[in-house]
């Protein structure tokens, strides 16, 4: 989780990722930032994020992203 927050802070340092829960809906992360984020996550955690998973519910908070990563790891 810490590593994930590190990645997020590199993308947009002006957000408190422990509390904000509308990263997508509040436009803290736009679609181009999502591309960077997905690349970073896939490299770092060795998972593959299918496009169907790219919905606001999975990316609105660091917590939900972490849940997604855990779930994808389990699937493999």
């Amino acid at each position: 989780m810490e590593k994930l927050i590190e990645i997020l802070e590199e993308l947009n340092p002006d957000v408190d990722y422990n509390t904000v829960e509308n990263l997508i809906d509040g436009r803290y992360l736009d679609s181009l930032k999502i591309l960077s984020l997905i690349a970073e996550i896939e490299d770092e955690f060795d998972v593959e994020i299918p496009t169907v998973e790219i919905v606001p519910a999975n990316f609105n908070s660091a917590k939900s992203m972490w849940a997604l990563i855990e779930r994808l790891k389990d699937d493999e």
Partner: peptide, 30 residues
């Protein structure tokens, strides 16, 4: 998303990120 996260799209993004960094790298595939 299907285009930018296709196999080719991902390859472009990861190689460009190495060359151009995180700010401009994803912009190419995007």
């Amino acid at each position: 998303y299907p285009v930018s996260l296709s196999k080719v799209g991902k390859k472009i993004t990861s190689s460009m990120r190495k060359k151009l960094g995180n700010q401009y790298g994803p912009l190419v595939g995007g």
